[in-house]
Design a protein around this nucleic acid. Structure first.
Lengths: 150, 150
DNA sequence: CGCGAGACGTTATATTGTATCCAACCGTTC
DNA sequence: GAACGGTTGGATACAATATAACGTCTCGCG
């Protein structure tokens, strides 16, 4: 386990946390590694099952605490429409992401589209609304799956 | 209960369902009425509690089934980030809505912004992605609450 | 009326997420 | 190095959200 790509993410995460004065502990690192290794989003209990393999039993709060930390640090994202989590591609800068979720293959693509951000922002400001967090999840079929399905 | 506005929604829902050849049964009507009467989104179990008042006991599936129907017909929307439901303002035409959710007062505003729709659509089509359902929820503070908070 | 599909009641259970309390660890200070 | 204080983690229990499964009833239709 822990592909080269995952190791790279872990290294960057380590550096980020150090710079921010927070601790990327073993548990948190493990959760992040599991998420990065997975080709698709994982539920908290799937992460839990993975962590339990060959190790002693763990309880849900352990995973949720690690996830809370990683979410705060922007190292992972939560997909509310799936009740699942994914590692973040580019945690270096804070960002509000958008997700394309394929309901055929389960793949999730994180995009960061200026135009969406801008239109959301201006739609909100019309009503005097001050956005804090944005949830943008588009469910559909990815390019690959919509070709197959035809 | 059942304000004039709610009654109007119920009437329109009745007409819509009749036109579509589906049945707006008593349970479904009741759930829709409860949602329309509420100034803020309600969880399934809050709806359940309301329905139980002064009546015989009901079980969760009853509410979830009614909600599934109403969602299919576009008469209510689900706010995934709140695990809650709201009545729809304009069920006449199918639409993908966006929501502004105030985390101070709990109020939710449904907006229907062309620009957001367009930018989402074009961002998806760049990757060859075919959207089916869109989840757009902006959490923040509404105009009223951000004034008070200052 | 009698039939069939859809709707509903009921029980049980799955899934996701938290509260709480205490023990272990870690870095700091003396 | 020992005492201390804050963060982290373990463990138990539980809350909140949602669904499976199955039998019964009802409604609209022929």
């Amino acid at each position: 386990m822990d592909s080269p790509a995952t190791l790279a993410v872990l290294d960057r995460a380590e550096i980020l946390c150090r710079a921010r004065g927070v601790r990327l502990t073993a548990q948190r690192r493990r959760v992040l590694a599991i998420l990065c290794d997975s080709p698709r989003p994982l539920g908290a209990y799937e992460i839990l099952d993975t962590m339990r393999e060959g190790s002693r039993p763990l309880a849900p709060p352990t995973v949720y605490r690690a996830l809370d930390f990683l979410l705060e640090q922007g190292l992972v994202h939560k997909l509310v429409s799936l009740h699942a989590f994914v590692g973040c591609n580019h945690p270096e800068h804070p960002h509000s992401s958008q997700f394309l979720i394929c309901n055929a293959c389960g793949e999730v693509t994180e995009i960061e589209d200026e135009a969406i951000d801008r239109s959301l922002g201006s739609a909100a400001s019309v009503s005097g609304f001050r956005p804090q967090r944005r949830v943008v999840e588009v469910i559909g079929t990815c390019a690959g799956c919509s070709q197959k399905g035809r």
